[in-house]
């Protein structure tokens, strides 16, 4: 397999200038065709081993965590789906009925039980009610293979329920946050928290908006976040 100088530089994690200099100084095996320079994968791998240099072709290491970028949360919200009229009068019963309602996610009964246990375990440590009637329940450790991409399921409660939230206000909405990795989890959590900090948004949530309007609102928030400065 033939490689270009850029590919080799990427694989060695070095700037192109360094590889160009090595070519000039004859420190790296290469071939010249017309005025083009190219490298052979096999020769180069042997050379890298000889010199104990790290050499990884970028296409060679598909990182499972990289497949799904922890991008926008409105996509995560869309993936998770929206559920209205959740029953329940305290933390445990609300979460129970919420997990039971999860239909779009392909969760086995066993996983469902595990998820519920994890969520309750997390609530036992400290409530995930972040105030203003919003709660963001999530398992403390990401569930193994539960979801390939960050997913947020939105649950509107039938009646606001006590949740031991930090401001002791009853909770009327749950964002169940499931992520494949801790970093994706933190990313979504920080974005969600940014939205919820806005009082106008919270009162908008209280009106139990339809999924489309909610998504549009969140997308607007995210645009604001992604804009430079």
């Amino acid at each position: 397999m033939k490689l270009s100088i850029q590919q080799v530089a990427d694989a060695l994690d070095l700037p192109v200038e360094t590889v160009e200099r090595w070519v000039r100084q004859g420190r790296i095996p290469f071939q010249r065709q017309q005025d083009e320079i190219h490298f052979r994968l096999g020769v180069l791998e042997r050379w890298a081993v000889q010199h104990k240099l790290p050499f990884h072709l970028t296409s060679e290491r598909p990182d499972p965590k990289e497949i799904c970028q922890p991008g926008s949360i409105h996509e995560a919200l869309q993936r998770g789906g929206f559920y209205y009229d959740i029953e329940g009068s305290d933390t445990e019963s609300v979460l129970q009925s919420a997990v039971r309602r999860l239909r779009d996610l392909e969760l086995s009964t066993q996983n469902r039980t595990l998820l519920l246990a994890r969520l309750l375990e997390r609530e036992a440590m400290a409530s995930t009610g972040v105030g203003k009637g919003v709660a963001i329940p999530h398992p403390r450790i990401p569930l193994e293979k539960a979801v390939p991409c960050p997913t947020i399921c939105t649950f509107f409660l039938k009646h606001a329920a006590p949740y031991q939230a930090i401001d002791d206000k009853p909770v009327f909405i749950l964002f169940l946050l499931l992520s494949p990795s801790t970093s994706a989890h933190l990313h979504c959590l920080s974005r969600l928290a940014f939205c919820v900090r806005d009082d106008a948004f919270v009162s908008f949530l209280r009106s139990r908006p339809a999924p489309e309007t909610l998504l549009a609102r969140v997308a607007a928030f995210e645009e604001q976040l992604d804009a430079p400065n």
Partner: peptide, 11 residues
Amino acid sequence: RRELMVQTRTT
């Protein structure tokens, strides 16, 4: 370090 490895271990 990489430069040194490349310069010295040429066989």
